[in-house]
């Protein structure tokens, strides 16, 4: 992965939270400023997210939109290394997955 030192990342314009149900993770992402919602929506397509983490997200990625609140909800199927009781990851809930998405660049030619 090569990210330019000054590249803007999703965390510069949005905040996020991750949750788990079984082996499915969901990450909701919210624009701090409603004006940035369109940029967020353009940048964070389900294809982009799947492409960024192919070894982690084994299943499909779905995106739900809540435009009136400036939010996107990503459902990442088969993306928790088996789920909280099966994963040997130190973070078996995938609580930190929100920061996987917040760390993506806003320029989607990068990661």
């Amino acid at each position: 992965m090569t990210v330019r030192a000054n590249a803007r990342i999703v965390r510069d314009i949005a905040h996020a939270r991750a949750g788990d149900k079984g082996n499915t993770s969901n990450v909701n992402v919210w624009a701090f400023d409603p004006k940035d919602y369109d940029l967020l929506k353009r940048t964070l397509t389900p294809e982009r997210i799947k492409r960024a983490f192919p070894d982690l997200i084994k299943g499909p990625v779905e995106r739900y939109e809540l435009p009136h609140l400036g939010g996107l909800n990503f459902v990442l199927h088969d993306a928790l290394e088996g789920g909280v009781n099966s994963s040997l990851n130190l973070d078996s809930h995938g609580k930190s997955w929100s920061f996987l998405i917040l760390g993506l660049t806003l320029d989607d030619t990068g990661r």
Partner: peptide
């Protein structure tokens, strides 16, 4: 907002 969609699909 963050809690609204916590563990929601």
């Amino acid at each position: 907002r963050e809690q609204l969609l916590y563990e929601v699909h």
